[in-house]
């Protein structure tokens, strides 16, 4: 029986663990090692160069531009997305006209809104990026045509072509594609808050804003916090890579104004043939990710509320 048990455990774990080790763990370990080498990625020959890559990185202006943008992403994007999502979710669940017999109620058509808001979540970020690239097009795009139609002929921004505007255009796409997910997530969380709490607050004469900050937000805090971490990791990783690579000129342009760390890693490794240096930038990205996640968990630590 014991013997059979261990044979069973090994038999069940061996294939998933082997796949995971070969395609995920091993490359991660290797990439840390390669960050100390001058490996080009094209030939199998390389030598260990110590901290040379890291020194080079410190003096690389494109790296710092990408770094700054990634930091802006990770600090700003989650806040915007979570704020909009919390607001919309609160309106959906608590913002309804007060009915007889219920202290709080959702607005009419709340299920419909939730379905619509979720649309972007099921689409590929690549498709979303392509679509918005056309919307932003200064000559034939829908946005500038709309501005002309409402009489703003003089306001015809270059959108993605304008270095001071491009980064915000890209961020807007990520906001557009992510808010719906969090609205639905927070709605589910709000639905599990007992109605008695709202009744008690209303009896005490609390306004909607007070109700939100004193009841909804504290009781939803765990969900908000995990959403925050999730959104941060996402805005540093694959999603920021996809939107920047697809939408921006260069990509990463104009003039490095939109480059982010995940795209810069890709460019160094697969465009410039500097795989060793690319992994160095990847390590910097890893550090930013871990610092962010650690920071959120630290700042957000509160007494867990049981209800």
């Amino acid at each position: 029986m014991q013997h059979g048990k261990y044979r069973f455990i090994v038999g069940f774990l061996i294939v998933p663990l082997a796949l995971y080790a070969i395609f995920v763990i091993w490359p991660f370990v290797q990439s840390i090692f390669y960050s100390f080498t001058n490996w080009s990625g094209l030939s199998p020959n390389f030598s260990v160069t110590g901290l040379d890559n890291y020194q080079r990185m410190i003096h690389d202006s494109t790296f710092w531009a990408s770094f700054r943008h990634s930091v802006i992403y990770v600090l700003v994007l989650p806040l915007i997305v979570l704020a909009i999502a919390l607001f919309l979710a609160f309106m959906l669940n608590v913002g309804g006209r007060r009915k007889r017999g219920a202290a709080v109620s959702g607005v009419q058509g709340a299920p419909f809104y939730k379905i619509v808001y979720f649309f972007p979540q099921v689409l590929s970020i690549a498709i979303v990026a392509l679509l918005f690239q056309f919307l932003y097009n200064p000559e034939s795009g829908a946005l500038n045509a709309f501005l002309s139609a409402v009489g703003l002929d003089s306001v015809q921004p270059e959108w993605l072509g304008d270095p001071s505007l491009a980064l915000w255009c890209v961020m807007a796409v990520l906001v557009w594609s992510q808010v719906g997910f969090f609205v639905v997530l927070f709605s589910a969380g709000m639905a599990s808050i007992p109605k008695d709490f709202y009744e008690a607050a209303l009896l005490d004469g609390a306004s909607r804003a007070t109700t939100f900050f004193r009841i909804t937000l504290p009781l939803l805090w765990d969900t908000v916090q995990s959403g925050w971490v999730y959104m941060g990791i996402l805005s540093l990783g694959a999603e920021s890579f996809a939107v920047t690579q697809i939408m921006t000129a260069g990509p990463g342009g104009p003039a490095d104004s939109t480059n982010v760390l995940s795209l810069y890693v890709y460019q160094k490794a697969f465009r410039d043939g500097q795989a060793g240096y690319a992994t160095t930038i990847g390590v910097a990205l890893l550090i930013v990710t871990l610092l962010f996640a650690g920071g959120v968990l630290r700042v957000g630590r509160r007494e867990r509320l049981e209800f």
């Binding site: 091993w26 490359p27 990439s31 490794a269 990205l285 890893l286």
Partner: peptide, 9 residues
């Protein structure tokens, strides 16, 4: 972990 870091190796 950022997937892009592992992608190079």
């Amino acid at each position: 972990f950022p997937v892009i870091l592992a992608l190079v190796p």
